[in-house]
């Protein structure tokens, strides 16, 4: 019997879902924190925020950030060291992105098991970059005195807040597209939970 090769290795699955938990808590509590001093002409309705009041929201936010940062560091370390990023996200060319986007919009983008198409690659690399931006701008908002160089890098306290908000917005847009894509191709979901199984070397495709 051939060795089972999962589509998504266990560490990746654990990190993906831990990250999803951290992101949901951070976004929900972040909206509550924004509501205490909005800088755009709207606030987030109370029912979609986490933490009940500002103190609770900050407590959730500053608790979940440790999960996001530690998990994120493991993910980046693992992704680079194991060659996962190189194998799964590269190469990535603008031409491939355009081609796959056009195909996806016509619902003609076939899903190859275990391979991310160019749109996915761009989205994943993009959301990783946004996550890093969110952490850095968040640190600048948290410590404008001690981490003054980081605060200065973003252009001061207020612009750090705006950048942090923009990073959140980008991540929310990613989640919308990401979850939509999963909804359109639901058979990719079980593999992200159980690991799934790559096609056997003899060519027979084994459904996860």
């Amino acid at each position: 019997m051939a060795k089972r090769v999962p589509i998504h290795p266990l560490p990746l699955r654990i990190m993906h879902w831990l990250n999803a938990i951290a992101i949901v808590v951070l976004i929900g509590s972040g909206w509550e924190i924004y509501d205490a001093s909005p800088f755009l002409p709207f606030t987030f309705p109370q029912w979609m925020t986490i933490g009940q009041w500002l103190g609770g929201a900050i407590a959730w936010h500053l608790a979940a950030i440790w999960l996001l940062m530690l998990n994120g560091l493991f993910y980046l370390g693992w992704g680079i060291a194991s060659g996962h990023f190189r194998r799964k996200f590269l190469p990535l060319s603008p031409r491939a992105v355009l081609r796959d986007t056009a195909a996806a919009l016509r619902f003609r983008l076939p899903h190859e098991v275990g391979v991310y198409n160019a749109v996915q690659r761009l989205l994943y690399l993009g959301v990783i970059a946004l996550g890093i931006l969110a952490v850095l701008s968040g640190l600048a908002v948290w410590k404008p005195v001690q981490l003054w160089w980081l605060s200065d890098l973003f252009g001061g306290f207020f612009i750090s807040r705006v950048v942090h908000f923009c990073a959140m917005t980008g991540i929310v847009l990613f989640i919308a597209v990401h979850v939509l894509l999963v909804a359109l191709v639901p058979r990719v979901l079980p593999a992200m939970i159980t690991g799934g199984r790559l096609p056997e070397p003899d060519g027979r495709e084994v459904r996860p």
């Binding site: 949901v24 929900g28 986490i50 933490g51 009940q52 609770g56």
Partner: peptide, 10 residues
């Protein structure tokens, strides 16, 4: 508060 967090699967 906790109920909401739980509802969100958090």
């Amino acid at each position: 508060l906790l109920g909401r967090a739980l509802a969100l699967g958090a």
